[in-house]
């Protein structure tokens, strides 16, 4: 088993929590993990990415080679496209479709949409809306994680255990809301990946 994943988004959106949950689940499954994170300057509203590698055998590089990623998982649509040169030919893009516009020259949203729809393997979801429906507007990242779950080769229950563990100290209500967002994302992706 090997999954190379690029997580992307805008500083402050919460991509690292996604990585933490997947990392915990992979650790529980006895897998090898490497995860390169971005800290520091770029976290202030700039583009952020993390390379997450999971494998049943030894992982060498902390960075994923270009053309090597099985998945790009993004909290922001333009940020998903930024990493296309890392995606393998059979790789999937799973992305939130809600633009985060904090720059004056953000690309035309129709052009963005067209590029995303033209990708051969893509899951598109409004993670913000799914999180709101789950009564947890700040859980867009868990909705996105849910949408990634069918493509991960890690049991969804394992990921749910990870969510419980990282939100436990915030109380049951927060845990349940995040699980609801996760499940909503999962259902959305199930439909799109079943083609």
């Amino acid at each position: 088993m090997k999954k190379d994943i690029i997580l992307s988004g805008v500083g402050g959106q919460g991509i690292l929590s996604i990585a933490t949950v997947i990392g915990r689940a992979a650790l529980a499954e006895g897998l090898q993990i490497k995860q390169a994170e971005v800290h520091g300057m770029s976290q202030r509203g700039g583009d952020v990415q993390s390379h997450l590698r999971i494998s049943s055998s030894e992982i060498r590089s902390d960075l994923i080679p270009r053309g090597g990623a099985d998945l790009i998982v993004s909290l922001e649509p333009m940020e998903a496209l930024r990493y296309l040169p890392w995606l393998s030919a059979e790789g999937w893009v799973v992305t939130n479709t809600v633009p985060f516009v904090n720059i004056p020259n953000y690309p035309d949203e129709k052009a963005l949409d067209a590029e995303l729809h033209a990708l051969p393997h893509v899951v598109l979801l409004d993670a913000d809306a799914l999180a709101r429906e789950a009564a947890s507007p700040r859980s867009a990242n868990m909705a996105l994680l849910g949408a990634t779950a069918p493509l991960l080769d890690i049991a969804a229950e394992r990921l749910e255990e990870g969510i419980r563990a990282i939100f436990a100290r915030k109380g049951d209500a927060v845990v349940e809301a995040n699980l609801a967002a996760f499940r909503a994302g999962y259902e959305t992706a199930k439909k799109q990946t079943a083609r």
């Binding site: 700039g46 583009d47 053309g67 090597g68 995606l87 393998s88 030919a89 690309p107 590029e115």
Partner: peptide, 27 residues
């Protein structure tokens, strides 16, 4: 490092032409 070893690059998707830089900013 791959290039320095003289190995052929992996096949990769073309870069998107519409992506623009997103520099950090004061909150």
């Amino acid at each position: 490092v791959r290039a320095a070893l003289g190995l052929a690059p992996h096949r990769a998707h073309a870069a998107s032409q519409i992506v623009v830089p997103r520099p950090p900013a004061l909150c």
